[in-house]
Structure formats: structure tokens, C-alpha cells
Write a protein that binds this DNA or RNA. Structure first.
Lengths: 184, 184
DNA sequence: GAGATATGTCAACAAGACTGACGTAAATGG
DNA sequence: CCATTTACGTCAGTCTTGTTGACATATCTC
């Protein structure tokens, strides 16, 4: 994983014609949120990734486990609708989870064609582990003082920024301040 | 792309022992945000994906193009720090973008080892197109009335929900209401 | 000039997505 | 009751995007 610098090098940047600031257009602020959402989501999925790696699972397994845990009795078709992947993709990871006893299938009582999905105790436990680290990050993000005005924009900005690893927030903010035409 | 149902089928669910409601623990609300963040991010990247497909590009190309556009003169090392991928991975997509004239490299003036990255006009135009659809979604999410109490939690919930395709919000909310122990 | 740094590149591999085709079991509608 | 549809499984091949490891080259720094 090699730490987490994010552009903290010897600021050896060039000043070229492309650096001439163009006016920071008003209401262009949601551009910043695009990046923050990228960084926030990256760190958000990074937490569970580390746990999953210990089990030989990936994000695809996580998503399946999560939804089956939270919505016991989900059918294959429903899961496909939620995840928006093909049944072939789903089947590969689902097979892993079933073979290793994290998920079980039960034939539907009303419709015997359906395979209802349930977590085993082991599956529930693993899902809880994964949920824990993500909920922790979210709880922290929500409890962190948003600071400043509470417009919808700054609330979202504060929320997304707080979703990023604390050690990295400064680096992200430094990067974003470097933007062409940034408000400095 | 085949529409976007998300669990709207003939509600043929079973009622089994696993459905016995377990008390919805208080302060467990950030669990909902986990899912909302998943759905929000899925739709958030879905917009640009459709545009990128027309160019034969993927998300990896998008990320490179985005950061080079916003931070002209970025070096390879800086980009690697931001994206957290290996130089081999970066090189593959960067090569595509350079060969097709969306990005150009310029040798650093201070340090001639560095390759400073810049967008061509075509690159800037494409980046603007991609940013536009994402900014549109964000602007809409921020302007949508959050409704109700304005705790940090419900602000985040409102923001994330508003990030989801409007046609699908109801389906997502229906799904989440179905959760085990949901507050009904 | 030696060594570190910035970048490029070859090769092999893995996860996770896709398409297309085909098979089976069960429900459903005439 | 039989034809069709639906729900699911699976085989086979491909693509994108990530990985590791090794090695080359140019440039900077001491």
C-alpha cells in the first residue's frame, strides 16, 4: 500500500502559458465536488479492500455479500438489478461465496425456480466486519464539524472532504488549491 | 443499457425465519449511507461512461484526462500519486490519449527528466463534456430541496439520494425500506 | 563520475466486467 | 396438456484495468 502521499513532491512545477489563470467562473464549484467524490469513494472502498484481501475476496464479493446480508432472501434477478452486472459476472463471485460457506441458496417456496440468497453466520460476521469500517468512516465524517456556512454546497463539500483519510485531506486540499484559476 | 429497474419485480418474496425483525439499533443510520454512496457513485460514473464509450475510452482514460485538464503541467509521478496506480497501468491509457491527440507531453524546463502533461484543445473539450454531465448531476443534487431536519446525517442522506438518477430514487428507497429491521 | 531520480517498456498475470450460445427446471397461459 | 416464457446455470472467449518484476535511458545531484 506504500503510504499515501498525493502530490507532495518538491513542488517543481513549471509556469507556462497554460498556467495563466482563467477567471474562476461562479457556480463552477460543483467541479470541486467531482474530485472530492472521487477521493472520498476511493478511501471509502479502500477500508474494506484490506479486509477482503485477507479472505482472497475482492470488491465484487463485497457488494454481493453486503446486499445479501442486508436483504436476506434476495433473488438472483434482484441482485442483478441492483448490481447492474451480468449473471455470468455475478455467478463467478457468488460461487466463491457459496463454496466457502458465506452464502447459502434456498429454493423459493412460491416459485421453485428462484434461488433465494441468505448469509450464513460466517457471512453475516464478515459483512458486519466490512460494514463496521465503512460505518466508522461515515460516522466520523458526519460528526466532524462542517465549519462555516451551511449551504447545500458546503455541507456536501464538508461531508466529502471528511470522508477522505484524515492524513490526506491536507494533501487533497493542497492539490485542489493548485487548480488553474483556483480562488487561492 | 436496458432501462433501470432495481428490484421492482412482482414482489414475490418469501417470509422466512430470517425475516424476523431485529431491533433497528439507534445510530446505525450510517449503514444506509453506505448503500446510498454505492448507488450515488454508480450513477455518478455512469454518465461519463456513456460518452467515453463513443470514443473507445474507459474510466481510466477519464481519470487521467480529468486531472491533466484541471492541473495542467502535472508530472507522471504526481499523477501516479493521485490515481494510486502503477506506472505501467497509467502508461497504457496515457499512451492512448497521447496517440489520439487529447494530451501532449512537454519536457520539463527545470528538470528535463520530467514529462509535463497538458491537454490539447480536443482534450480540454472532451474533459469539459465529461465534467458537464457530472457537474449537472451535482448541481441538481445540491439544488434539490433537502427536506426535513438538517442534521449532518440527513444532509448527507439527501445529498446522496439526490445524486441517484431521479427515476430510480423511488426504487432505491423501496429497496432500502425492505431492509431487515427497517423502520418501516 | 557515481548514484539517485523520472520515465518508458517488455512480459506475464489476475480480477472483474462483457458477449454469445446453450441447457434445464419450473411456471404460466391458451 | 402442451407451448412458451421465465429463472437460473454454465461454457467459452474477449476486454479493460489493475498487478509484479525486470530492465533501459536520460537527467539531475553530490
Amino acid at each position: 500500500m506504500e503510504g499515501a502521499p498525493i502530490v507532495d513532491r518538491h513542488a517543481t512545477r513549471e509556469v507556462t502559458k497554460a498556467d495563466t489563470p482563467r477567471a474562476a467562473a461562479p457556480a463552477e464549484g460543483s467541479d470541486d465536488l467531482i474530485e472530492l467524490l472521487f477521493f472520498a469513494y476511493r478511501d471509502f472502498v479502500g477500508d474494506p479492500d484490506r479486509i477482503l484481501a485477507q479472505y482472497g475476496f475482492g470488491r465484487a464479493h463485497h457488494r454481493v455479500l453486503h446486499f445479501v446480508d442486508r436483504y436476506p432472501g434476495l433473488t438472483i434477478a434482484e441482485l442483478l438489478d441492483i448490481l447492474r452486472i451480468t449473471k455470468q459476472s455475478l455467478n463467478r463471485v457468488l460461487k466463491d461465496l457459496i463454496e466457502q460457506d458465506y452464502i447459502v441458496q434456498k429454493t423459493g417456496a412460491n416459485d421453485r425456480r428462484q434461488r433465494l440468497l441468505f448469509c450464513t453466520p460466517a457471512g453475516t460476521a464478515l459483512a458486519a466486519d466490512l460494514t463496521r469500517v465503512q460505518a466508522r468512516r461515515l460516522a466520523r465524517a458526519l460528526s466532524d464539524p462542517p465549519e462555516g456556512d451551511s449551504t447545500a454546497y458546503s455541507a456536501a463539500e464538508g461531508f466529502l472532504l471528511a470522508m477522505i483519510d484524515p492524513e490526506e485531506r491536507a494533501a487533497v486540499q493542497r492539490l485542489m488549491a493548485r487548480r488553474v484559476g483556483a480562488v487561492a
